[in-house]
């Protein structure tokens, strides 16, 4: 088969809804694009543990502490499902981690904001995991089999993250005026970064066209963002919270909200490393990695010794 015929066959499979599996022929830019996207997704899960980890020892009750621990453990698991999917494309785990630690690979900009109060833990579950869910449910339709299967697994587990977050917020809203203010303050700080999670409107780049043509992504950033806003605004209103966007208008005939302009300068600034917590996040990741080095070495030495003994 010529390269051209292979590409045609590849496109035919994608158009007919067949999934692409690891050993199938694929264009090099499909592979590269997916490794970049899946590893970025994996890094986000792992770095996402840090802002929440900040509150484990200060959770207001044992129930909340258990929930938070389980949720953070899930995020680690989700990162591992995704690294595993990226590895089916020929990326190595060492290389993926190296790229995160050197700043070559990016992760979601949202995790560069600090978690200042307990209400922020509610806002993360409600808004950040809510936005992530909208994105991930759509990614179940991605053409790459292992990525799609990781999404199914993650979406099944993530529903609890979203609900526990909203429960925290709802509880604060039913509390004292100070507690309700705390919930409002968290919403004020997390709303716009959550909106930015979907990324800027897709430009007509080759990159974007390939993503859509090859069904790496199933929906545009803009349509996912709109879905999230339509879903989340009523949840805020139900608890008497105010979305910090004066331009939010509901159109009953389309059941859609229009919204104000997103500050993309802030978004790019944070992605480039200038958010409030970028340095701390990468430093904490690297420290955890470096501190674990002796464990990796000891386990390797132990495995070697044992296999020698069983061979003898």
């Amino acid at each position: 088969m010529t390269e051209e015929q292979r590409l045609e066959e590849f496109q035919r499979k994608i158009d007919s809804g067949e999934k692409i599996e690891p050993k199938d022929w694929m264009p090099e830019s499909y592979r590269k694009n997916l490794i970049r996207m899946i590893s970025q997704h994996a890094h986000s899960e792992i770095v996402g543990m840090l802002p929440e980890g900040n509150w484990i020892t200060r959770a207001p009750s044992l129930r909340r502490k258990l929930i938070l621990l389980a949720k953070i453990q899930d995020e680690a698991g989700h990162g591992l499902y995704l690294y595993s999917a990226a590895e089916t494309l020929g990326a190595s785990r060492e290389e993926l981690l190296e790229n995160l630690h050197t700043g070559k690979a990016k992760y979601s900009s949202i995790f560069n904001y600090p978690t200042l109060t307990w209400a922020d833990i509610g806002a993360i579950g409600w808004l950040v995991d809510g936005a992530a869910m909208v994105n991930q449910v759509s990614l179940i339709k991605t053409s790459y089999g292992p990525y799609s299967r990781a999404m199914v697994r993650i979406c099944k587990e993530e529903a609890f993250h979203n609900r526990q977050g909203y429960e925290i917020i709802a509880e604060l809203c039913n509390g004292t005026p100070e507690q309700k203010q705390m919930a409002q303050d968290a919403l004020d700080r997390w709303w716009w970064p959550a909106i930015q999670m979907f990324g800027p409107e897709d430009t007509k780049s080759t990159h974007f066209e390939e993503s859509m043509k090859w069904k790496i992504k199933a929906e545009s950033n803009e349509s996912l963002r709109q879905k999230f806003i339509n879903m989340t605004v009523p949840q805020a209103e139900a608890r008497g919270l105010k979305i910090p966007d004066p331009n939010l208008v509901f159109y009953p005939e389309t059941k859609t909200y229009t919204y104000g302009e997103v500050d993309w300068n802030e978004f790019f600034n944070v992605i480039q490393g200038n958010g409030p917590m970028n340095k701390q996040r990468v430093r904490a990741r690297k420290k955890a990695h470096d501190d674990g080095k002796w464990v990796r070495e000891a386990a390797t030495a132990y495995a070697k010794k044992k296999s020698k003994q069983s061979a003898a």
Binding site: R149, A303, S307
Partner: peptide, 8 residues
């Protein structure tokens, strides 16, 4: 279901 890394 996927893969893991392990020393043994």
């Amino acid at each position: 279901v996927g893969s893991v890394h392990a020393s043994d």
